[in-house]
Write a protein that binds this DNA or RNA. Sequence first.
DNA 1: TAAACCATGTAATCAGTTACATGATTGC
DNA 2: GCAATCATGTAACTGATTACATGGTTTA
Lengths: 180, 180
Amino acid sequence: MKTNHTKFVIMGILTTNCRSGYQIKQFIDQSLNHFWKLSYGQIYPTLKQIVEEGLATVQYASQEDKPDKKEYFLTEKGKEAFYAWLEKPLEEIPVEKNNVLLKIFFSRHQSKAKTIEHLSYYKEKLQERYVTYESIEWMISSGLSELPDAQYWLFTLDYGKRVTKAAMEWCEATANKLKE
Amino acid sequence: MKTNHTKFVIMGILTTNCRSGYQIKQFIDQSLNHFWKLSYGQIYPTLKQIVEEGLATVQYASQEDKPDKKEYFLTEKGKEAFYAWLEKPLEEIPVEKNNVLLKIFFSRHQSKAKTIEHLSYYKEKLQERYVTYESIEWMISSGLSELPDAQYWLFTLDYGKRVTKAAMEWCEATANKLKE
DNA sequence: TAAACCATGTAATCAGTTACATGATTGC
DNA sequence: GCAATCATGTAACTGATTACATGGTTTA
């Protein structure tokens, strides 16, 4: 039932102009980082697999100022597979694994001061995250790079901001309840 | 760096009055389900390990109306280890792996109608989740069972509700932007 | 007697991270 | 010559799910 999305994420990134494993990693770290991560240990073997399945082709590209690299291009079959994945109904919707809530859940066994400390740390981290989203948002919407995907990328950032803001407000509200 | 929380979740549940592997599973499915999951394949081996490390003891309990079971009790050492984990600073805060955002991110390659369809499906699922939270909240705060942890459990539900609501609003707003 | 639930466990598999290994190129 | 960055890859390990295996008890 549960589909592994790794292959499709990589194929999706190939539809932007990222073509090598190294570039894909950079792209993910900069853009998808708030809702998806991939390591080299996944990227390179998956690229290999994608080629084996005839979903992409490789070309060796020599660069003047940098080491050589491999460039991957989706085949027609690859594009079709990607579109099919995209349109496929969602079924499983995500469940966040939240270690902060885990500790809050059991916080009866701890001083209120300590719990408030955890909450304020969490809020701080969320605040940093929020600022990051804002700066990425600003970069995209400044339109310097004329991105065809811009609108959709902004949607995901908007999601990140809304959810992060809600979480921050919860931190605040919960800490206040504990201070009463 | 990254600590595995599985052991501590189970130890935490042992501080409530869940004592067997089966009960622990039930407890998680009912209470922690919105931010933590565990399978039997984790629970039973971990319980074994907890005993081996001297963090808990086992007792065989025969029941009249049900099959026999094993009951686990935290030792002093176990309690101390649990409290230490609880108070330990958070460091890594969670990053949600969100397959819905993944599809939205690449939705340039798809009709707006299809994207709106995904959004409305997601919203529907979030709505169901929200209702579930409300019903659990109601159960806890009705106070029928006089739970010592009640306050903290309600905090985590409040988090779930706030974040889910924010996500639902995003679905609505994003679908509207696409309809313009 | 079959279905539903209570109860415990293991083995195979899958997904993902981390550490390791290698090497080119550039700029200080 | 060294650090930083670009670039590709693998092997070992960890975490977690799933499928399988077993069997007791209750109720319809």
